[in-house]
Design a protein around this nucleic acid. Structure first.
Lengths: 350, 350
DNA sequence: GAACCGCGGTCAATCGATTGACGATGCGCC
DNA sequence: GGCGCATCGTCAATCGATTGACCGCGGTTC
């Protein structure tokens, strides 16, 4: 059981624990090079690791961050985000607590309290899908950064969100530069934040290219009976593709919607990408790569989001310690890379 | 900043910290009911929460568990597992550290050390896909339970793994009771542990039903050029379904393989489930529900795995404290529930 | 009336590190 | 020789809780 304590190291090196601590924390000017050498050797020989609990008690820094989210950890989106955050944290020798709160605010508050009782150094507050919202009350006064969440103007925290607009712009540009002009957009319900942004990106590019036709935008009605995204994609596509002046390309709100587009194309005997080009959004694992042909889509920069959030949080914590530097704040847009696969081709001029 | 300390509570209640601690930890026999009442009231009024770092320093229990895995956290499988573990841990007021080690053993060792420096109470060691393996050296001497990993015989730890065999049995029985007799099985490479078990389940049921035809088992060759699972599913299905005595049902190794089966059926103009019944395995999100018709499949009991692992780990920790009770060990098979959707029907006797 | 007991509570050591306040030692300089 | 000043270290308090040892007191018991 017996872990090696600072005292053991000190004894082995023939100095006091004070000196040992000083050396190991590199507080220069209070020990000689010889002593330092001895201490360090003893430490490595014994395999000493400071007890972070005790250290934290004294310094009130636990080298531990918390990643709190509503649902994120239980969605297929989570993977890269967690990994990005963990990697960044680990660079600075921090570890991550991860908790899912679901939508229950009381539960969330409990978890946050429990995290504070463990003296975490800061919080990453993440949302599964982009939304507006505030930082939970319980995190007040602590370093926090947001992820995929739009904070209120007056919030002192920084937040990282995917740049949906430019992602949509890239997607549509991809189609335009392949030669398409009649491009449809099948989108979600209009209260969905990401929907608005992707639509804005679409509209912007199309208008600039002089080929915006609002008639080719299909928005899922609020009172839609089914809001299964692939079903909606199929229904909308069927309708669009049956028109005599059917679009030659479809920009789908997301990859699940694109699944529906594929189904519709199949039903109508339209080949992708020969007769119809398709671009999705999200680059969802198991979707984008399993469709045939594989789907060209826009990836959500989850790994970057995680990395940036953790790095920034660490900076905020450090700034807190030095209680000098102003801390970062504001919403930061992170670019969404285009992932080219095989669902886009030139329009079929027949 | 100032958190409420035990001392504050004690002062407010007019007692010593010793008494306050005794009351709050319910060590009966050393205080009167009146005092207890006063202390408790003071505690709730001030919103007291013990500092778990300090507490842990003294008691060497941090109410914190670690979930260490190779890749699990970054796969779509992870979700439910994490949630299950978190829920179970939370029941006992524990929180979870989660780390991904990737396949780098040195990194793994570092992380484990770091976790021990934080004095976690125990480890859940999880694998992404079922495999054989030992507990990392660094966890020796600590409470550990495994997940989706087959431990060596002599291991003192318990491990929870899905009962692949009975899952396969259920899947095939589903087909048999729908009336099928010519059932094919498209499986993975033969060194994959889960492959062997699912195949065993298939073979067992088929033999019992007197309709085992090994010719209908298609195993992905070891030296296969592409080991993309859906491609393989498609290739194998095409071949099987082109036979004059084609099978009326296919049990696919997993849902991704089933995607290929669907594609093949479509190419050949076979309808599911009218002309061909299909059962998958894994119940992968975004696959099983997005295929049309939706796929009948066997779910991996990830949530249960997580829950059981955490609960058991907590028991082991408790047993350690009471240093009495023998700790659970051995590999525990957790049942895989059948998920009925729409890809199974009676055989088409035409 | 002395010894003893149980009850209700407090003292102070302890967990393992950090760090401000203090030495001790040696050297240079007037 | 004495003073000042670095340089190199150690002492001991501290972070916030837990807990074995101990204590005072009123009541029994013989």
């Amino acid at each position: 059981m017996g872990r090696v304590r600072l005292q053991d190291v000190a004894e082995a090196a023939g100095v006091s624990t004070a000196t040992a601590s000083l050396v190991l924390n590199d507080r220069r000017g209070r020990f000689s090079a010889t002593t330092a050498e001895a201490v360090r050797r003893a430490a490595t020989e014994l395999g000493y690791r400071p007890d972070l609990g005790a250290k934290g008690l004294r310094t009130s820094r636990t080298q531990t961050l918390a990643l709190v989210s509503d649902e994120i950890l239980t969605t297929p989106y989570a993977n890269q985000m967690i990994q990005g955050a963990q990697d960044a944290a680990w660079q600075s020798e921090h570890l991550l607590f991860m908790v899912n709160t679901g939508s229950d605010k009381a539960y969330e508050a409990e978890l946050v309290e429990s995290l504070r009782a463990r003296r975490v150094d800061g919080f990453i507050y993440a949302s599964m899908i982009r939304r507006r919202g505030g930082i939970p009350e319980g995190m007040r006064g602590m370093p926090v950064v947001g992820m995929d969440i739009e904070l209120p103007e007056d919030s002192a925290a920084a937040s990282f969100v995917p740049d949906e607009v430019s992602g949509a712009v890239a997607a549509v540009s991809e189609l335009i530069s392949a030669g398409h002009r009649r491009i449809a957009h099948i989108t979600d319900q209009d209260w969905v934040p990401a929907q608005q942004l992707r639509l804005r990106g679409f509209t912007g590019v199309m208008r600039d290219a002089g080929c915006l036709d609002l008639d080719l935008v299909r928005r899922l009605p609020r009172d839609a009976a089914s809001n299964d995204q692939s079903d909606w994609g199929e229904r909308a596509s069927l309708e669009l593709l049956r028109r005599t002046d059917r679009p030659t390309a479809i920009f789908a709100y997301n990859d699940r919607t694109a699944i529906g587009v594929y189904r519709a194309a199949r039903e109508l005997g339209l080949r992708i990408p020969e007769d119809l080009s398709v671009v999705g959004f999200d680059d969802q694992i198991l979707v984008a790569t399993e469709l045939r042909p594989q789907l060209t889509t826009v990836a959500l920069p989850h790994r970057d989001l995680g990395r940036l959030a953790a790095q920034t949080l660490l900076q905020v914590v450090a700034a807190d310690d030095a209680d000098g530097a102003e801390r970062p704040s504001g919403t930061v847009l992170v670019p969404c890379p285009m992932v080219q696969r095989n669902s886009v081709g030139p329009p079929n001029r027949s």
